[in-house]
């Protein structure tokens, strides 16, 4: 893959669809194109978050640690962004992500990612929207769990 093709792929990522060609190119050039084999860890829960990823090809699973071991709690598809939360909050990775089959990722350095947000309000807004969605989901899950807890404790 060369920069030209990567740039084309990037422009298909909804998040970046509104970006100018030259900015996409810079993004591609300053990012690292990585190949992961099946089952390989992309990010590890608890590690420092210094970058975000865009899936260029393939898919990856999100794992959560529970008492009964690791379970898949979600799957990320091509053109999706991942790991952005850690970069924004500067907190350690919240979950482990593994490649499901061969995956090609574009690794965007934390600094570059923040720069992208700062310079492009449309991208920032999109990221915000995605994050809000995640927040709503988490909130709803939390409420459900609370309800079940109440039922179980019988109060």
């Amino acid at each position: 893959m060369d920069i030209q093709r990567e740039t084309e792929t990037l422009s298909k990522v909804p998040l970046f669809s509104k970006l100018e060609q030259s900015k996409l190119k810079l993004l591609a050039f300053t990012s690292e194109l990585q190949t992961y084999s099946d089952g390989e860890v992309v990010v590890n829960e608890g590690d420092a978050a210094d970058c975000a990823f865009v899936i260029m090809e393939g898919q990856a699973d999100i794992y959560a640690n529970t008492e009964s071991g690791e379970v898949v709690v979600g799957t990320l598809m091509a053109n999706q962004l991942l790991g952005e939360l850690g970069v924004l909050t500067n907190a350690p990775r919240a979950a482990t992500i593994r490649a499901n089959g061969k995956v090609i990722m574009l690794r965007i350095g934390g600094e570059m990612f923040l720069r992208l947000l700062a310079e492009n309000p449309s991208v920032a807004l999109d990221v915000m929207r995605q994050l809000s969605g995640k927040l709503v989901l988490a909130h709803r899950q939390n409420e459900e769990l609370q309800d079940r807890l109440h039922q179980l404790t019988g109060s």
Partner: peptide, 13 residues
């Protein structure tokens, strides 16, 4: 020249 034209001079990039 194309890529870095808009990047400020003191950037780490």
């Amino acid at each position: 020249v194309d890529l870095f034209a808009d990047v400020e001079a003191d950037s780490h990039l």
